[in-house]
Design a protein around this nucleic acid. Structure first.
Lengths: 233, 233
DNA sequence: ACCTGAACACCGTTCAAGT
DNA sequence: ACCTGAACACCGTTCAAGT
């Protein structure tokens, strides 16, 4: 499709150099490498990404990747930060609904990670990229508007970060394989007499992840900004 | 040391078969494998554990391990759960200080993981072992005593689990290498105009992890059990 | 019952070389 | 400037065999 000669006769898009063979792969680039890495991670999980497989998908030799990228770690960092890009409006102050604004920021963050289940567990191990910092910035500003005191700001940010990250990792790992989950449930059922309390509340059978996330976040926000009650209109 | 012939003349400990050469390594066992795996993980981190290195330390061939253990994943599961064994008293109800009891359970959990920094990030990826379930059980009972309603129980447990796990992973990853941390701070400083809010609160320079953990946990508990105020005697 | 070495099918990355 | 293949120093695990 790309490069097909249509109505425009001048080559306005490729501005210099001889045309490469029309049907070949586009040249390697950081961007293409990252996009393909994300595809591979989505399809095969964290262990599924290898430099060799990545090169295969890109139709290049393995070592060609290393011109564009420092190492496999580098690929992980780039893929993670790419997936965390915030695509919403930076100004979503909805009629002074600060609580709603904070919830929006965190739900959007969580949704981005759940779209790429490998990303949550990577986030906890890799350095903070620009898009991650951007989301922290957004959160910090929303918390300020919600009246969180400067002295409590870092505690509030880290608490929410930890909560979102933990919740997303937990959910992603429980969703990973029904097989594992069934095995865990079986083992729990077998040991139910030793774990009477969590058996009674059916902790490991509860799969309303979205509801649990929202309600737990509500409790945390109640603690962080007691002025703003959850039942306010 | 082990097996040294002393005052006891009868061999009461080894009950059958010929004595092995006195000075040799004790025989391979699940227990020894797990203990050595933990040593290796403590010394070299998650990537430092390989079956070959593990066998070397144990003075055995690599494939001998597979008689006692299913796979490398199995070793991870066993090492993780071993490290999470709860060594405190199961009855620490201190004069009806339910809030203090909950905090104790969670601080002890966190401390166990911080002693083995690889464990927190493993916890998020591996299945729940018996010791992990035991700690969840302890938490569940403490929450019941603190008056958390049955309908809120699972939300409360998961919220606290997510908080503790997230906080511990975050702390462990920031402590991992001063080098990375310095690099992150440098990058943040350079981009400070784009991230004015988190720069202002010096989010990434704040290293009072213990205080932040405790205060954030306080906020979460305020939300979960509003009856029990943090300033109560 | 417990341990072993050889072999297989992989890894990430260095290096010296090509265009 | 960009790409490459050969080679190095590793992996986890299968298998057939030893005691």
């Amino acid at each position: 499709m790309a490069g097909k000669r249509g109505a425009r006769s001048k080559r306005t898009q490729r501005t210099s150099g001889p045309l490469p063979p029309v049907r070949s792969e586009p040249p390697l680039s950081r961007q293409r490498i990252v996009a393909t890495a994300i595809e591979l991670l989505d399809a095969q999980g964290l262990d599924g990404l290898t430099m060799r497989r990545l090169a295969d998908r890109l139709g290049s030799g393995v070592m060609s990747l290393y011109w564009h990228v420092d190492s496999k770690e580098d690929v992980f960092d780039l893929a993670l930060d790419s997936v965390l890009e915030y695509r919403g409006s930076p100004h979503i102050a909805q009629l002074h609904d600060w609580r709603g604004e904070i919830i929006h920021v965190l739900e959007d963050w969580r949704a981005s990670m759940l779209r790429h289940p490998w990303s949550a567990s990577l986030l906890s191990r890799r350095a903070l990229g620009p898009n991650t910092l951007g989301r922290l910035e957004l959160l910090s500003k929303a918390l300020s508007r919600a009246g969180v005191a400067a002295a409590d700001m870092n505690v509030a940010i880290w608490s929410l970060w930890n909560y979102v990250m933990g919740a997303t990792i937990t959910r992603a790992s429980f969703e990973l394989s029904d097989e594992d989950r069934a095995a865990a449930q079986l083992r729990l059922a077998r040991l139910s007499e030793r774990y009477a309390a969590i058996e009674r509340s059916r902790l490991l059978l509860d799969d309303d992840w979205d509801g649990t996330f929202r309600r737990g976040l509500g409790f945390l926000l109640d603690g962080l900004a007691p002025g703003q009650n959850s039942s306010a209109p």
